[in-house]
């Protein structure tokens, strides 16, 4: 089956991102296809590479990056939501005149159209939020 995944909450404060990760990883293990993981609202904060959780805790963004590398999963941050919250890749940082970027490997910035497109392509769209 083809799944589209929407993540609406950031890491650590809410369980939504953990649940989305476990669902996505389990779906891939079971041989399903993930059309795309789309991060919206505070969900875009999953895409920072500057998060430094304590050693004995999970690293949410690194875990997503590893999943993207291993399974070639598209991880998309909504551009408008990301800009509001200071999640910038190199191009966006340059465009906005900022002196730093913070996008974790495997994440890309794109538009809300990618969410709708995932909904159209996928057999099931699963929303993880609060």
């Amino acid at each position: 089956m083809k799944f589209g995944i929407l993540v609406n909450e950031g890491p650590y404060t809410h369980q939504a991102s953990d649940s989305a990760y476990h669902f996505t990883a389990a779906a891939l293990r079971a041989g399903h296809e993930i059309v795309r993981v789309f991060f919206y609202h505070d969900g875009v904060n999953n895409g920072t590479r500057l998060s430094v959780p304590p050693q004995d805790d999970r690293n949410v963004s690194e875990r997503w990056s590893a999943l993207a590398e291993e399974h070639d999963v598209e991880l998309i941050l909504c551009v408008a939501a990301a800009q509001r919250r200071g999640l910038l890749d190199e191009d966006e940082a340059k465009r906005a005149g900022k002196n730093a970027d913070n996008m974790a490997p495997g994440f890309q910035i794109s538009g809300l159209g990618q969410l709708i497109d995932a909904g159209i392509q996928a057999d099931r769209t699963v929303v993880f939020g609060d």
Binding site: N8, Y40, H41, A80, A81, G111, L112, G113, L115, I116, D117, G119, I120
Partner: peptide
């Protein structure tokens, strides 16, 4: 911000003629 960003999705989605 959920309401505001939801409305943004709806407006963008309109271009997809769903």
């Amino acid at each position: 911000i959920y309401a505001q960003e939801s409305l943004e999705v709806v407006l963008i989605a309109a271009a997809f003629e769903q």
